[in-house]
């Protein structure tokens, strides 16, 4: 019998070692303390948002403490994204939530996916770097040492793909379109600035938490399981990106002709 090791390990390892996270996501209620910690904001801000956004209505226990469901947390994510990350006014955010909630959710999911791919790529690069150092130690052959700058380019491109910004080389042509779609653009593309900043300094970048076997199985396995599946990674990424274009006000990253090419370059450079 042929063992499917991916699911075997998922069953026996991931469930075991990610059980705390799992438990959290499966938990029925979150307390105010947990929620405010999750978003790193004051409880007062969440109470304020609760007044302002009708979609946010946590239950309360007998003592009057708020009990947030997963749905409440998801709603908070959207509000946080619009108000804190995009700097929208409360009225603007309310309107957006009413008009196109689905599109917003999709965008958030895409951003999260791209960020996790970026983290993964940075991790891969780190490992490649370590391998390179070893190779250098073994063969003192100076010729192969100028490969890393290319790799940096690839990661910068990845970052700009993830953030939806336009790479310097095509900035002039793409600029007008960018400003026309400014509002919708920001809805899709804004990342937590802090995480981007960290990302742009690859030397200092260390994902805070590196789960041994990350949950996002598809890109992970595409990269780590070998040559035959490598091309799948690119197509997954572009599939996700093209998903964006279906959202009415979503910025379609795949309309940007450079994205596909970037993906290709990233793949070629990394592997």
């Amino acid at each position: 019998m042929k063992t499917d090791w991916n699911s075997y390990l998922a069953l026996h390892l991931e469930s075991r070692f990610m059980s705390e996270t799992d438990r959290k996501t499966r938990k029925i209620y979150y307390s105010m303390g947990e929620v405010s910690e999750m978003f790193d904001v004051n409880p007062s801000l969440i109470r304020f948002w609760e007044q302002k956004f009708s979609i946010l209505k946590p239950e309360k226990n007998k003592k009057g403490n708020r009990l947030f469901t997963q749905q409440d947390v998801d709603n908070l994510k959207l509000i946080y994204h619009l108000v804190k990350e995009n700097g929208m006014t409360l009225a603007g955010a309310q309107k957006r939530l009413k008009e196109n909630r689905e599109g917003l959710e999709r965008n958030l999911e895409i951003i999260e996916r791209l960020q996790s791919i970026k983290t993964l790529l940075l991790e891969v690069r780190q490992e490649l770097k370590e391998a390179e150092v070893r190779v250098d130690e073994i063969r003192v052959d100076a010729d192969s040492s100028n490969e890393w700058p290319e790799d940096n380019d690839a990661l910068e491109m990845m970052e700009s793909a993830a953030s939806g910004s336009v790479s310097p080389s095509v900035a002039t042509t793409a600029q007008p379109e960018t400003s026309r779609q400014e509002e919708s653009m920001s809805a899709v593309t804004t990342e937590t600035p802090a995480s981007l900043e960290r990302g742009s300094g690859p030397q200092s970048f260390r994902p805070q938490e590196q789960p041994l076997f990350p949950e996002y199985v598809t890109p992970e396995s595409a990269i780590t399981t070998g040559e035959s599946e490598r091309s799948a990674e690119g197509s997954i990424a572009s599939e996700k990106v093209s998903g964006t274009s279906q959202g009415e006000d979503a910025v379609s990253l795949d309309e940007d002709p450079t994205v596909g090419k970037r993906m290709q370059i990233i793949e070629q450079t990394l592997f």
Partner: peptide, 15 residues
Amino acid sequence: IDLLYAIITKKIATF
């Protein structure tokens, strides 16, 4: 052997 292989290669790709 197969179990150890699965555990180790799930993460390591550099050698």
